[in-house]
Design a binder for these strands. Structure first.
Length: 447
RNA sequence: UCCUCGCUAGCUCAAUUGGCAGAGCGGGCGGCUGUUAACCGCUAGGUUCGAGGUUCAAGUCCUCGGCGAGGAGCCA
């Protein structure tokens, strides 16, 4: 009885007879040789059949095997630098084959790039291709690394509701649903407000789950359903928050670099960027960021690009501004102290500068932009109530939230990190729709 | 919501000034003992997104509609 192995572990079995169970990703034949590129869920390995090693009937079956046929192969593992695959470098010399299913010959995915519409219509099959498979393996490791770091640093996982009674932050458009006799309910856009309650019971918490935005955003950085981790910390100010963020991000990058090297290489990721990720990250005030963008605006000669870089104090950064700014650095960069008017109602004012709040965004390098948004939350009950009125939010719905400032208010801070944007950055991919198994966009709920 | 671009074989794309509807991949058949998206020969495969219009002639030009893309705004 030969061991059933995982392809990702194949190097351990050099010279041994093993069994691989999987699917035929590609097949090519050359006379008396057949090469099958077999994927087993953990990797891709080349399996080679020589006509002289088996009956003619079995060899003929292998020659004609359609892509995606499912089978079990037993054979000898041997190192061969010509062998393609992930991790690659090893192949299996086929001795026995057991077929499960000969796949239909009309498999729609060609072994090449597809247009986005076709690829997304076939997302259930697209995820079998090495690029998508590698990205989603990185995603799983990013999620595992996030939980690992938080769980080992004193954070309690505290799930927050997905069905919520009212707008959490007021501004963005939410998905709406009927809720029995209680009127409307809304899909959560953040668990933050609940986490502010949770920290007053547990100290340090995080929620991790899907969040929903019904905004009609159509860009490579937006999904209507995406995953976000939101840590929240009692007795934490803005400076301490930035330290937490850079520790977490560094941990994620290091674990992905360590555990997903074959996947990153197959994605042709430029690893030198990831190797530079070490604390501390540069910290830039909004004021200084404004000056830098205005300098870049002055220096830009292309009139079209120049127009996009136009910026004055008080504006929120657009995508072109973020890109231009992050291109000045090799590491993620913190921008803190945004104007109060462009940020949410719950952020603590900057001491002595009420027009600025204690907010901080983390912008990823290489033009990836904002992956984290966070802030020190408002401490004072009366000021918070005033802000709720200024933003035309229903005071009734925020009664419980105001309570948190009545019964033992403390300085506290938290942030939200977008999983798909982080994965897209680490993988070096263009569009975040590839960083989630089944993307939901304004134009797509299938499959 | 606005701006821009696109839609041709199963897929990725070409088609000059408006002048015979094409290639590669994938499929089928045949060849080859080291292929790397193999290669070589043969072969099947079309409502050119839809409707109307201009023209001797429309994939190509015009009008309306549909679908998609990525950018703005907003955000992670």
């Amino acid at each position: 009885m030969t061991p059933i192995i995982r392809v990702e572990d194949i190097a351990k079995y050099d010279g041994q007879e093993v069994t691989v169970q999987g699917w035929v990703y590609n097949r090519t034949d050359k006379g008396k040789l057949v090469f099958l590129l077999v994927r087993d869920g953990t990797g891709f390995v080349q399996c080679v059949a020589f006509k002289g090693d088996m009956t003619e009937a079995i060899f003929d079956q292998l020659v004609r095997l359609p892509q995606e046929s499912s089978l079990v192969i037993t054979g000898l593992v041997r190192a061969d630098r010509r062998a393609p695959g992930i991790p690659g470098g090893y192949e299996v010399g086929i001795k026995q084959v057991q077929m499960f299913q000969t796949a239909s010959e009309d498999y729609p995915m060609a072994l090449k790039e597809h247009g986005p519409d076709f690829a997304l219509d076939h997302r259930h099959l697209w995820i079998r291709m090495p690029s998508q498979w590698a990205i989603l393996r990185v995603r799983a490791t990013v999620i595992a690394a996030i939980r690992e770091w938080l769980d080992t640093n004193g954070y309690i996982n505290m799930d927050t509701p997905i069905l919520t009674p009212a707008a959490c932050e007021g501004t963005t458009t939410l998905f709406e649903t009927e809720y029995f006799d209680e009127g409307k309910a809304y899909l959560a856009q953040s668990g933050q407000l609940y986490n502010e309650a949770n920290i007053m019971a547990f100290g340090k918490v995080y929620c991790f789950g899907p969040t929903f935005r019904a905004e009609k955003s159509k860009t490579r950085r937006h999904l209507t359903e995406f995953w976000m981790v939101e840590p929240e910390i009692a007795f934490c100010d803005l400076d301490q928050l930035m330290e937490v963020e850079e520790q977490l991000v560094t941990h994620i990058v290091k674990r992905v670099y360590r555990e997903r090297m074959p996947e990153l290489k197959s994605l042709e990721r430029d690893l030198s960027w990831l190797e530079k990720i070490e604390p501390p990250f540069p910290r830039l005030s909004y004021d200084d960021a404004t000056s830098k963008i205005q300098e870049l605006y002055q220096a830009e000669t292309d009139p079209e690009k120049k127009e996009l870089l136009k910026f004055e104090w008080g504006m929120d950064f657009g995508s072109p501004h973020e890109t231009a700014l992050t291109n000045l650095y090799e590491k993620p960069v913190f921008v803190y102290g945004y104007p109060t008017q462009v940020k949410a109602f719950y952020m603590e004012p900057w001491p002595g500068r009420p027009e600025v709040c204690k907010s901080v965004d983390l912008l990823a390098p290489e033009g990836y932009g904002e992956i984290i948004g966070g802030s020190e939350r408002m401490f004072d009950h009366d000021l918070l109530l005033q802000r709720i009125h200024e933003h035309d939010l229903p005071e009734q719905a925020f009664q419980w939230y105001l309570d948190l400032r009545k019964y033992g208010s403390v300085p506290h801070s938290g942030f939200g990190m977008g999983v798909e944007r982080t994965v897209a950055w680490l993988c070096g991919i263009e569009h975040i729709r590839e960083a989630i198994p089944y993307p939901r966009t304004i134009k797509r709920v299938y499959p």
